[in-house]
Simulated scan of single mutants.
Amino acid sequence: MAEADQKKSYRFVSGFARGLSVIEAFGPTARQLTVADVAVRTGLDRAVARRLLLTLQELGFVTVDRRKYELTPRILHLGYSYLATVGLDGATQPFLDRLSREIGDTVSLSVLSGDRVVFIARSDAFAGHAEAGRISYTITPGMTVAAYASASGRMLLSALPPADAQAILARSDLTRLTPHTETDPARLAALIAEARAQGYALNEQETELDLLGASVLVRSRSGRPVAALNTSSYLGRIDRQRMVADVIPKLQACAEQLTGILL
């Protein structure tokens, strides 16, 4: 159902949708927001934004200090409910830790949310290596990246019907994150199809210079695509050939083990 039609449906609760939009207004660059900030970021009237913030405050999802609101840890309950229903809670951590030690790099789990990939778990149990400092960002749970530009995103898009993946690409802002980022829709569709056919996706310097990423699909016991299992490494330590020959099989083996614990 189209968004415009959905909003006209008697089943659509606009007040609930507005409350969710207020929660989504917060983020890494918007940790504290005033009523006016929320109104601007959501497009809501200031009076409506204020009532919604006060409601969230009473429910314990936000707190306020000097007219600036911020989310509380209670908001994690919402995300944990999703993770628990599919088995992507703490039960996956020992598998990620074991894989991280085996390949000597950070590993992560991610899921698709619209045109973004959300990281939900990570491990750097390998305890670091000499080149780790060359990578300028650290993956943390809740962090997002553009699906079109990442190995994990292309892997997750490959699990969708091609028409659905194409629709997500069509509404994505295909911006170059580095000089190597692929932004041509036809070429991106081909890369997604390639990931679907070969069972893994690679990404070389498209989200970060000097970074080579790899991703495989994780399925539930019923065969439903649930998440992507990912790793990335500094190009001085690994190349595409070794990633495919040595690391991808270990990712796939871990993904199969995770299938055994997922609902």
Rank of each mutant, 00 (worst) to 15 (best):
G128E: 11
G128C: 02
A130T: 10
A130F: 06
A130N: 03
E131D: 08
A132V: 07
G133W: 11
G133T: 04
I135N: 13
I135M: 13
S136F: 06
S136Y: 07
Y137P: 00
Y137D: 00
T138W: 06
I139S: 09
I139L: 15
T140S: 12
T144E: 13
V145Y: 05
Y148M: 09
Y148R: 00
Y148H: 13
A149H: 08
A151W: 10
A151K: 04
S152V: 12
G153A: 09
G153C: 08
M155I: 04
L156D: 05
S158R: 02
S158G: 06
A159S: 15
L160R: 12
P161D: 14
P162D: 05
A163R: 14
D164I: 09
Q166C: 04
A167F: 00
A167L: 06
I168M: 14
I168T: 09
L169G: 10
A170S: 15
A170H: 10
R171D: 03
S172V: 01
D173Y: 05
L174F: 07
T175A: 14
T175G: 02
L177T: 01
L177K: 02
L177W: 12
T178P: 03
T178M: 01
T178I: 03
H180K: 12
H180I: 00
H180R: 11
H180E: 14
P185F: 13
R187P: 01
R187L: 11
A189L: 03
A189F: 01
A189P: 02
A190P: 05
A190I: 00
A190T: 03
A190V: 03
I192M: 02
I192Y: 00
I192N: 03
A195C: 10
R196T: 04
A197T: 15
A197F: 03
Q198A: 09
G199A: 06
G199I: 09
G199L: 03
Y200L: 04
Y200Q: 09
A201F: 07
A201K: 02
L202M: 09
L202F: 07
L202V: 06
L202S: 05
L202G: 02
L202Y: 02
N203S: 15
N203C: 14
E204P: 00
Q205M: 11
E206M: 10
E208D: 07
E208N: 05
E208S: 04
L209Q: 10
L209M: 14
D210K: 06
D210C: 05
D210Y: 11
L211K: 04
L212N: 03
L212R: 01
G213M: 05
S215D: 07
V216C: 10
V216S: 07
V216D: 01
L217N: 05
V218W: 08
R219N: 12
R219T: 08
S220H: 04
S220V: 00
R224G: 01
P225I: 06
P225S: 10
V226L: 14
V226C: 12
A227Q: 11
A227I: 01
A228R: 06
L229R: 06
L229Y: 04
N230P: 02
T231S: 14
T231G: 08
T231Y: 05
T231N: 06
S232F: 14
S232R: 11
Y234V: 08
L235T: 13
R237P: 00
R237A: 12
R237D: 14
